[in-house]
Structure formats: structure tokens, C-alpha cells
């Protein structure tokens, strides 16, 4: 299939992006690989007068629950665990459904994709929290907070999954349905 330039905005025109699914899976895998160390390594290193503690993403949320800040703990858990895991599963399901067809309607799958794309950016909230805390809490010996290596891998994981969602050619959802209708 030949590609043309759009007469209006100059971007590449392609009836269907044939390389789309390949890029989706590549970024998806890269995101998943980064997500594993992001959960195993410490996100925050807190040093107070008496002690030094390292906390992972889930560990930090558990600490918050012990302090009684359940609302914030839920925000962190949703943004850093529920959304990324849900996103990995949703993109994988959508990519498979384009190839194999699905019992769920095109409109439903398109809707799911829009939710994934809208909500994915919000996972960055935890990285920003680490950035704010480690610049603000620098009180010499009393208390100081430093970023752990998980901040980097988690940010990479979010960026890769955003790229994965952006690589998806959403028109493919509707094609499979049309193609099936035409053949029957």
C-alpha cells in the first residue's frame, strides 16, 4: 500500500498502519520489563535522625495506611499498581483481539482503548511525588529523602506503555468487524 502526504497538515497518510501491532508489542514488552524492577527496588530512601528506611511502591502505600492516610494510599495504589497492571492486560487483550477477532463489540473495545489512553499518563503521579519529596525534604540530619532506582524504572515503564498505546491504530478495531460482515 502506497503512503501519501496529507494535503492539510503534512503527516503521512496510510489507510491502515500495518506495522502498528509490532510496535505495540515491542513497547508493551519494554514497559513490562521495566515494571518488574520498579516494584522490587526501593522508590524512596528516607533518612531520619535515628533510622534509615527504604520503601518500595507497595511498601510506601502500606506505610501510609499505618499512618491512617487511607485516601492517599488508595491514590498511590491505584496510580502505581492497578492502572499499570490493568493497562498491560488491556493492551495485550486489544492487540490479540485485532488479530483473532473478539466476542466484544468494536465500540466496547474502542471505548476500553480510550480509557487506557486517557488514564495511562496519571501513573506518572508517583514519580512526581518522589521528585517533590526529595527536593523538599532536605533537613540535614533531621530528615532527608532521596529517590531510589525504582523511580527511574517506573517512569520508563509508564513512558513505554504510553508509547505502546499511541502506536495502536484504533481503526483496526472497526476493520475486523467490517471485514467479517463483508465475507458473510
Amino acid at each position: 500500500m502506497r503512503t501519501e502526504r496529507c494535503g492539510r497538515c503534512g503527516s503521512h497518510l496510510q489507510s491502515r498502519d500495518t506495522g502498528s501491532l509490532g510496535r505495540v508489542w515491542a513497547f508493551w514488552l519494554a514497559g513490562l520489563i521495566c515494571y518488574v524492577p520498579a516494584n522490587l527496588n526501593p522508590m524512596l530512601i528516607t533518612q531520619t535522625l535515628l533510622s534509615s528506611s527504604k520503601s518500595t511502591i507497595v511498601g510506601g502505600a502500606v506505610d501510609l495506611i499505618h499512618h491512617g492516610a487511607i485516601g492517599v494510599a488508595i491514590i498511590i495504589l491505584v496510580a502505581s499498581v492497578l492502572i499499570p497492571v490493568g493497562k498491560f492486560m488491556a493492551i495485550a487483550y486489544l492487540a490479540v483481539s485485532v488479530r483473532r477477532g473478539s466476542s466484544i463489540s468494536s465500540a466496547r473495545r474502542h471505548h476500553l482503548f480510550e480509557v487506557v489512553e486517557f488514564i495511562g499518563r496519571w501513573s506518572m503521579v508517583d514519580v512526581f511525588v518522589v521528585a517533590i519529596l526529595s527536593s523538599l525534604v532536605q533537613l540535614s540530619v533531621v530528615a532527608s529523602i532521596h529517590p531510589g532506582s525504582a523511580a527511574l524504572t517506573f517512569a520508563l515503564s509508564v513512558i513505554f506503555t504510553m508509547l505502546s498505546a499511541q502506536a495502536f491504530d484504533t481503526r483496526l478495531f472497526w476493520d475486523t468487524k467490517d471485514a467479517r460482515n463483508e465475507t458473510t
Binding site: 531520619t48 501510609l64 499512618h67 492516610a69 485516601g71 492517599v72 491514590i75 498511590i76 489512553e117 499518563r121 496519571w122 506518572m124 503521579v125 508517583d126 514519580v127 512526581f128 511525588v129 521528585a131 517533590i132 519529596l133 523538599l136 525534604v137 533537613l139 530528615a143 504510553m162 499511541q166
Partner: peptide
């Protein structure tokens, strides 16, 4: 557009505030 995350940073501030509220 998707890479401009000022509004997410604002939510991050709120979370950070609560995290250190009893520390300082």
C-alpha cells in the same frame, strides 16, 4: 499533548503533602 503533565504534577503535590504531613 499527552506528554504535557502539569495537571498530574499538581495531584503529585497533594499526595506529597499528605505523605510528609506528620513528619514536618
Amino acid at each position: 499533548k499527552p506528554w504535557a503533565m502539569a495537571e498530574i504534577f499538581a495531584i503529585g503535590c497533594a499526595v506529597a503533602l499528605v505523605k510528609v504531613a506528620d513528619l514536618a
